[in-house]
Amino acid sequence: MRLRHIEIFHAIYMTGSITNAAQFLHVSQPSVSKVLAHAEMQLGFDLFQRVKGRLIPTAEANMLFNEVDKVYKQIRSVRNTAENIKKSKKGNINIGLAPALGFDLVPKAVAEFKKTHPDVNINIQTMHNEQVQQALLERKIDFALMFSPPPLPGITQKLVLQSQLMVVYPNKFFPEQPQSMNVEQLIDQEIIGIWDSGPLGDIVFNRITDQDIEMKCNIQVQTYFIAARLVAQEMGVCIIDEYTAKGNLCHKTSIATLSPSLHFNLQALHLTDQQLSQTSKHLLDEIHNVANI
């Protein structure tokens, strides 16, 4: 099957008729019919049967579709990559962010950056570690900002800054409102667990297990701001990154550093074979500057 055959077959299979497929592809109905007939002639079997005005896939078409769908998605990925490469030449920066960075750090840095780069377009997407590699390969983003990400093949990591994990607690749990706490002080408290949330969850879990401490944990989350909002409802305490902690403070909660401290790295990730543009480097510098104000 040629690429055009795949595109037409996929469209008819998904929409159920030549008319709908033609509308979806923005081509004429006769051209869709012609390509379909040519594909069936080359394959040597029918792909559809007409039943009450609809085209019903044959058994052979159903067997073929899974493989065709894989190729179709690859074609779409190539088109997306090509479009994003074209856009990158027009002063665009496409960034993938860990959600926690959207509370304070990156918005402030973007505001400062735009003062000196008013004509640069910035597109920000939130994503998690497991989504970064595909987004970079498809050129959907120029770089990603992630917390202590694992090594990825073909991806270069650059340290932007080092930060720390913090305890968020309800004021009524600790009326003295300490500014620094150790893990032992949390033993009798309900912990909002983030163990399955990625690298930061691993850091917290390792600290607790290394000290052979048993924690009460009946609520687990994978998103840090949800943990912080549960603390605001006085459901327990949590240990999360300082950006989410500071961005979700309210009159009922306080934050404290851990003693000894638990540090993590904010890394910028980009394709090894694609150097960052100067504008991207300037934005990363601005993020570093804002973090150290």
Rank of each mutant, 00 (worst) to 15 (best):
I226E: 06
Q222S: 08
C250L: 14
E234L: 00
N206T: 13
V204L: 09
N218Y: 03
I255Q: 07
I240R: 11
T223A: 12
P260G: 04
S254F: 07
I255Y: 08
D241E: 15
N218E: 12
D241H: 12
F205Y: 09
L249K: 09
C217W: 04
V221S: 00
I226D: 10
V231D: 00
I208Q: 14
P260E: 02
I219Y: 09
T253Y: 08
C217Q: 06
Q222A: 09
T257N: 10
I203H: 12
F205W: 11
A227D: 00
G236I: 12
T257R: 06
I239A: 08
A245G: 03
L230Y: 10
K246Q: 15
S259K: 08
V237S: 01
V204A: 03
C238P: 06
L230Q: 12
I213S: 11
A245Y: 08
G236Q: 06
H251N: 11
S254T: 04
I203C: 00
I213M: 15
M215W: 04
C238Y: 02
S259C: 01
Y224F: 10
D241A: 15
K246N: 15
A245T: 02
Q222P: 05
V237F: 05
K246S: 11
R229T: 00
N206L: 15
A232W: 00
V204W: 01
M235W: 03
E242A: 15
D212I: 10
N218T: 15
I255R: 00
V231M: 06
C217L: 13
Q220W: 11
S261A: 15
L249V: 15
I203Y: 05
T223I: 13
H251R: 09
T244H: 03
Q220D: 13
Y243C: 03
I226C: 00
V204Q: 03
V204K: 01
E242M: 13
R207C: 08
T253N: 03
V237C: 04
V204Y: 06
G247P: 05
P260N: 01
K246Y: 11
F205M: 10
T209S: 05
A227E: 06
Q222M: 05
Y243V: 08
K216D: 09
Q211F: 13
M235K: 13
D241F: 07
T253L: 03
G236H: 05
I255A: 07
T257Q: 12
S261K: 15
L262T: 01
S261Q: 04
Y243N: 14
S259W: 00
S261I: 11
P260K: 01
I240Y: 10
M215T: 14
V231E: 05
L230V: 00
I226L: 10
C217P: 11
E214V: 12
M215D: 14
N218I: 09
E242V: 07
M235Y: 04
R207W: 14
M235Q: 13
K246G: 07
N218H: 02
V221C: 11
M235H: 11
G247L: 02
G236F: 02
S254I: 09
I240V: 15
C217V: 08
I203D: 07
V204I: 10
A256N: 04
Q233H: 14
E234V: 03
I240D: 01
F205C: 01
